[in-house]
Amino acid sequence: MLLAITRLAEKGTADAALCKQYGHECRVVSPLRAEIRSSTIQTFVLAAADHEFDAIFFTSALPAQKIAPLLPPHLTKTTRVIAIGPQTAKVLHQAGIAAETLPTFYSRDFVPYLGDWIEGKRIGIPRADVPNPDLINAIEDAGGMAFEYRCYGLEPTSEPLNLDDVDAILFTSANSYKMALLPSLDTGSLLPMAIGEVTADAMRAGGLEPKVIGDGSLEGTLKALNAYLRSTE
């Protein structure tokens, strides 16, 4: 199948190879673009270098790409670095930053992962300028202190998605669905997919029922797609 994958252009570089492993092709379509805030990144890097955080949580690969090369390699001697998934962890590792990886792809599992350790700890979170009150509230309810650095904004491209000849569309976030300019989708021929439950809920709220729902990762979604295709043969 040819999949249209809603990604920031900066995030889609490894998608084609992974899709090929599962027997598919892909086209990255970008309903959003990242507006990088260099001054915020620099402020965060200085704070991290001054050991102001007990842990840093990277919630996606893009801030890891921008920040990891600027961090001192000795950082992890005093600071835990946690990545939301293996792709984000890979970016950190390539920059020489040792990172732990959450067992799931959802930020709601960050606090349970740290457990009682989080009490009294300062958590630095470089991320997109998208509110995540559930994460912040969970950290504070567990006795931690959250310090968000909104190091890039998400702006709509305001361009209709190119869905010519595609067989399925995979939305990789709630915002990528909400901000997408979509043609009228014929769900009889175009398979709607969600990368995880949060995105699926946003699609349902907008009146589009996903036929395939992943575990929060592209690879997990491709596995779910192939299972769906086998079930409909």
Rank of each mutant, 00 (worst) to 15 (best):
L208E: 05
D141V: 08
T199L: 00
A68R: 06
L222R: 05
P133F: 12
D109F: 09
T79E: 03
P131D: 11
E197Y: 03
K66S: 08
T157D: 05
D186V: 03
R27I: 00
A202M: 04
H24Y: 14
E119P: 01
I125E: 01
T40D: 09
R127M: 14
V130F: 15
Y22W: 15
K20R: 15
S107R: 00
I125G: 02
V212Y: 03
V212S: 01
E155R: 14
I84D: 00
I5N: 01
G115Y: 14
G96F: 10
V28W: 00
D186R: 11
A89N: 07
R37C: 08
T40F: 10
E119D: 11
Y152L: 06
G153W: 03
D134I: 13
D165H: 13
E52Y: 02
D54L: 03
P112W: 12
A17S: 14
L229H: 04
A95G: 10
L135G: 05
P31Y: 05
P103W: 04
G214K: 02
D15E: 09
M179G: 01
T199A: 07
L32F: 11
P133K: 13
P31D: 02
A146G: 09
P126Y: 05
K178R: 15
H93Q: 15
H93S: 14
Q87F: 07
G96Y: 02
T221W: 00
P31Q: 04
P86M: 13
I123Y: 06
E159N: 09
S189T: 15
P86D: 12
A99E: 05
L161P: 02
P86W: 07
D109E: 11
N162V: 03
R127Y: 08
Y177I: 02
L62H: 10
G196T: 05
L163P: 03
D186I: 02
N137W: 02
